[in-house]
């Protein structure tokens, strides 16, 4: 073979580094770090901290997409869980508030999984139902208001820290670890990749696909519920109209940037998180740049295009051919 295919993940990690370097060019203090109230403080920390909700969504979404599904309802699930957590925060202990919020996420996941795996509805349609209805449910919980709370315990999930590291970053790291252990420590990862790669062949090999699909939708909704708690804790209030709005698209984008095909099969948890960080590094860079906000989406689209081109196998093939032709 005349050329070496880029090693899996190299493109994404390179892209993240390049975007961070561009951020540094845009804003000279980008890599500055200091401690503020016992918490690390700086633009780089913002990238990780603000990227946390999308990273969590991507951790669930990547499994769903690996089974050749998609979950459009994660933004709405965020709104529901945030609304529940905020409503309960001042009247109940934080473990109750968080547990009920996550429980709601579990139910949402079961619903999606039921529609997809048992009733056989196409995932994009099945999850669209909750995407639309879920936000309505959240609005019913908050009665259309922004429900604020004062409980510092719940607020920790958004603004707290341990050893100087912001809580959302720790939660993402923990979720990544748990997901990794569950998926790669068991046979789930292989079976998901098999089912996503070729569902018929996997079923004929004795893989129980239904239960697995329900499981990934449940996990996806749980991650979304956790992201919802973080988002509510961050602003100490639940904004049912806006919490998680359009984040399902960012999550899908993060997964795709992370190299997982929308046609299912091979997936990578770490690269999905990396994809979320690429998106956030870009967002933070745009905010720091001082460009008028009208440019935000254009810049974002251009960067995403470049990242996706970088990992396109066809493009690397073309480049290799070009090199061969010159050599």
């Amino acid at each position: 073979m005349a050329f070496q295919l880029p090693r899996r993940g190299l493109a994404q990690i390179l892209a993240l580094i390049v975007i961070l370097l561009i951020d540094r060019m845009v804003s000279s203090q980008f890599f500055d770090l200091r401690l503020q109230d016992g918490r690390l403080f700086g633009s780089l920390i913002d990238v990780f901290n603000r990227g946390a909700p999308v990273a969590l969504l991507a951790l669930g979404m990547v499994l769903v997409i690996a089974t050749r599904g998609i979950d459009l309802s994660v933004g709405a699930v965020m709104a529901i869980s945030g609304a529940i957590a905020a409503s309960l925060a001042d009247s109940h202990a934080w473990p109750v508030a968080v547990a009920v919020a996550l429980g709601a996420g579990l139910l949402c996941g079961l619903w999606n999984g039921f529609l997809v795996a048992v009733l056989g509805i196409q995932p994009i349609v099945a999850t669209l139902i909750l995407m639309v209805a879920g936000r309505g449910v959240a609005q019913l919980i908050t009665e259309g208001r922004i429900v604020t709370f004062t409980s510092p315990d719940l607020a920790w999930f958004g603004t707290g820290s341990a050893l100087g590291i912001p809580a959302p970053v720790l939660i993402v790291a923990g979720t990544l670890l748990v997901t990794g252990l569950v998926v790669r420590g068991s046979a789930l990862g292989l079976l998901i990749e098999a089912a996503g790669g070729n569902a018929r062949a996997s079923e004929l090999s004795g893989v129980g696909i239904r239960l697995m699909i329900v499981a990934v939708y449940v996990w996806c909704s749980l991650c979304a519920a956790l992201a919802g708690v973080i988002a509510a804790a961050d602003i100490m209030g639940a904004d049912a109209n806006n919490a998680g709005l359009w984040l399902e698209l960012d999550a899908i984008l993060a997964v795709v940037i992370g190299g997982t095909s929308l046609f299912g099969g091979r997936f990578s948890l770490i690269l999905a998180v990396c994809g979320a960080l690429i998106i956030q590094a870009m967002n933070t860079g745009i905010l720091l740049s001082g460009y008028p906000p009208e440019f935000n989406l254009v810049v974002k689209a251009a960067v995403v295009l470049v990242v996706l081109l970088l990992q396109s196998p066809r493009l690397s093939g073309l480049v290799a051919n070009f090199r061969k032709a010159r050599a």
Binding site: G185, S186, A187, L188, L190, L191, A194, S202, S205, G206, V207, G208, M212
Partner: peptide, 14 residues
């Protein structure tokens, strides 16, 4: 390993 793994179940990975 796919069929063998499916037979063993998710919790008993090879």
């Amino acid at each position: 390993v796919l069929a063998l793994q499916a037979k063993r179940g998710i919790t008993r990975p090879l």
